[in-house]
């Protein structure tokens, strides 16, 4: 049971943070299908930082530099989407898909290049970071407390305040609902959209880092992040683009995802003798069903996915 709570919380943190990222981007009017790819690159940034930091550094310094590395990697990579979607009026779904393919491919190429440079016989795409990972984890009895759990909560609270209580957030939402109107009162739509994409890149990168530190201490980048970016998008849609709902939905989805890791610990579930594949499928099936019920009265930002053209009325 404790294990279930632990995994639920950590997976929910990933989903919540990434979904909030997507939420910022879409409130600004840019659909971010590329979250999956951004997560991989963010994870790569964090993992490489953990690998190359000297073991003698203070725990807080390690924590901050690793988080910063993943944020930065995510931001830089999300600029691919930003430039194409905002300056070049590209089809956002197409560019997002390109980013999803580019992310894992680039990660594998980079990791392999580093591995083979260190040791010519090493052609794997695995990064090990067992040592540095420990700074994020505190053992309370049997419960493995992870600093990312409160961080995710903090992000949710901040997202709520920023989106609904600050000038910036309200302006951002205006750009996603009716950019022409926003422009007419002097808001720079392009700049606001860039801000949305940058925030989503940062949070997506951070989410990737949390995902690879959950449970394991090395990561094979060929696997990417197994569709978590897309699950986060489903969480965002089910949460109707609102931070509080996103937080609750993330918990629900996190629990289903956690079940596949720990279902053998429950006698009733183990007695059902379902193959583990069924539990692996569960989050995807649930999200498909959930989407059926919420998509009809969608509260999606009105102008999302439409490139902003200053000359259009």
């Amino acid at each position: 049971m404790l294990l279930l709570i632990q995994y639920t919380l950590i997976f929910a943190s990933v989903l919540a943070i990434v979904a909030i990222g997507g939420c910022f981007s879409e409130h600004g009017g840019v659909i971010n299908i590329g979250l999956e790819g951004i997560m991989v690159i963010g994870a790569l940034g964090g993992a490489l930082m953990m690998k190359f930091l000297p073991g003698t550094m203070a725990a807080t310094a390690v924590m901050i530099s690793v988080i910063l590395a993943s944020l930065l990697a995510g931001i830089v990579f999300s600029m691919f989407l930003g430039v194409a979607a905002i300056n070049f009026n590209a089809d956002q779904t197409l560019v997002g898909t390109a980013i999803n393919l580019l992310g894992p491919a680039a990660a594998v190429v980079i990791v392999r290049a580093i591995n083979t440079a260190q040791n010519p016989d090493n052609v794997s795409s695995t990064v090990a970071y067992g040592h540095a990972k420990k700074v994020f984890i505190v053992n309370i009895g049997k419960f493995e407390f992870n600093w990312f759990m409160p961080l995710a909560f903090l992000v949710l609270v901040c997202a709520y305040i920023v989106l609904y209580k600050t000038k910036f957030g309200l302006r951002l939402c205006a750009c996603g609902e009716h950019p022409q109107a926003a422009d007419s009162v002097g808001i720079n739509v392009y700049r606001m959209r860039y801000a949305g994409v940058i925030i989503s890149g940062a949070l997506g990168g951070l989410g990737g880092l949390i995902y690879i530190t959950a449970g394991v201490s090395e990561w094979k980048f060929e696997n990417g992040v197994a569709g978590f970016g897309f699950l986060a998008l489903a969480v965002m849609i089910f949460g109707q683009w609102k931070p509080i709902n996103i937080g609750l939905t993330a918990l629900l989805f996190g629990m289903f995802r956690a079940l596949s890791n720990v279902y053998t610990g429950f006698d009733t579930l183990a007695a059902l003798k379902l193959p583990s594949t069924v539990y692996n499928m569960l989050p995807y099936i649930i999200s498909l069903i959930v989407l059926v019920f919420v998509s009809k009265k969608s509260r999606a930002p009105k102008a999302e996915g439409i490139p902003y053209d200053k000359g259009q009325r």
């Binding site: 691919f80 590209a90 390109a98 393919l101 491919a105 190429v109 290049a113 052609v123 795409s125």
Partner: peptide, 17 residues
């Protein structure tokens, strides 16, 4: 590594956008 081709085709899609 062989994934360099994946990188190239991913970038080609990006350009198509």
């Amino acid at each position: 590594c062989a994934q360099i081709s994946d990188l190239i085709s991913a970038f080609i899609i990006y350009c198509c956008g």
